[in-house]
Computed example of a mutant assay.
Amino acid sequence: MGNEAGWTHHEAVVNNVRLHWVEAGEGPPVLLLHGFPEFWYEWRHQLAALAGMGYRAVAPDLRGYNLSEKPEGVEAYRIEKLVDDVRGLIRHLGVERAHVVGHDWGGVVAWWLAMIAPEQIDRLVIINAPHPQAFRRELMTPDQMLRSWYAAAFQVPLLPEAAFRANDFALLGRIFRASSVRPGAFSDEDIRRYREAAARPGAITAMINYYRAAARYPGPPARAITTPTLLIWGEQDQALSIRLTEGLDEWVPGIRIERVPGVSHWVPAEAPDRVNELLAGFLSPR
């Protein structure tokens, strides 16, 4: 992990919501968009590495998470608003474009950003997050339907929140460690910080509302993505079928796909050196 003492914390109102983010380094900006149930801290292994490569690494808490504002209501978490948050943050950083790296829900937001506002992205990196069209295709199969059972369970009011809050958010630790295939990827300190972030007032409902909004508001029509794109995929992801990496040329012509064996959904934590190596090569092409 990098020297956290060298990182700076920032806050600003962006797209009418107060966002918190962490920065490291100077140079061309790289936005790092975390997934569920994490926050900016997901990128603890990438912030220092990217700063060392000569980038300005920017890791926000997405709306609803950790220190960012938590608007009430499911509608506040529809995909268009999440994309507009990122667009506004890029502009707030004083640049027109940025490299964008997204994992899980952050990757879903990044996919849509590339479809809605490609002019704001230099290069796109997605880590274990399904392209919307591929997900719709695979969700029709029994395998992915079974893997996505939790997303259906999240549609129930109140009960998911109660399950997470039980025993001081003990479920969070089980989620990370039970689905991780590399022992030690998540330390006790890591789990403590994830539990602390999820326990902030309003956070767990906001985090689950991403799934509720996705079910209620499908988003705009998908478009072809022409941005140079790298997809990194941990092959032992329990929640997302590896078939989601197939057939993507139709929607993302020229996409580069790097499958990482022996790694689960939590690729930035389980294989940080490999992720950093791929980022170095893709963001700074020869």
Rank of each mutant, 00 (worst) to 15 (best):
G102N: 07
F36T: 05
M145N: 09
I242N: 04
N3G: 06
R223E: 14
W40D: 06
L82S: 06
A162S: 07
E235R: 15
Q238G: 08
N209G: 05
A59S: 05
L19P: 00
D61Y: 12
L158W: 13
I225D: 00
R56G: 05
P221Y: 08
H20Q: 02
R259F: 10
V13S: 13
F186H: 11
G2L: 10
W251F: 09
F176C: 00
P29R: 12
L124R: 03
V275E: 04
V252P: 08
R97E: 14
R137S: 05
Y211A: 14
A76H: 08
R259G: 00
R44F: 00
A199Q: 11
Q120T: 15
A129N: 01
G262R: 11
A197W: 14
H34D: 01
W149E: 07
V275T: 09
R136K: 11
E75G: 09
I232W: 01
I257V: 15
R223G: 12
E196V: 09
P142S: 10
I232L: 12
E258R: 13
V108S: 02
E72I: 08
P132A: 14
R216C: 02
M115L: 10
A51C: 00
R195Y: 09
G2M: 13
G281R: 04
V58F: 04
F135L: 14
L93S: 06
F282K: 00
R192K: 14
A117K: 07
V252W: 11
F176E: 00
A110R: 06
W266S: 06
V125S: 03
M115C: 10
F36E: 01
E161I: 08
P218A: 09
T229P: 02
T245F: 04
P201N: 12
V267L: 08
A163T: 05
L47R: 00
V101C: 12
P130L: 08
H103A: 04
P201L: 09
R91S: 13
W266T: 02
E75Q: 14
Q133I: 10
I175C: 02
W251S: 04
A199V: 09
R91V: 12
N209L: 11
A271E: 10
S68I: 01
P221L: 08
I242M: 06
P132L: 14
F169Y: 15
R193E: 15
F154C: 01
E277P: 03
T205H: 07
G202K: 11
V58K: 00
A57E: 03
F169E: 12
R274A: 14
A163K: 07
R177I: 15
V22I: 04
I225N: 04
Y210Q: 02
Y150C: 13
E246M: 03
D61E: 07
P221R: 08
R56S: 06
F164T: 04
L32T: 01
A203F: 11
R182S: 05
W7S: 07
G54V: 05
P60L: 03
A166E: 09
Q133M: 11
R18S: 15
G6C: 09
P29V: 01
A178D: 10
D84H: 02
R165I: 13
A213P: 01
P60S: 02
E75Y: 13
A271S: 12
G281S: 07
V156E: 04
E72F: 01
P130F: 00
L278Q: 08
S148K: 03
M115N: 10
E250S: 15
A129G: 07
M140F: 05
A185F: 07
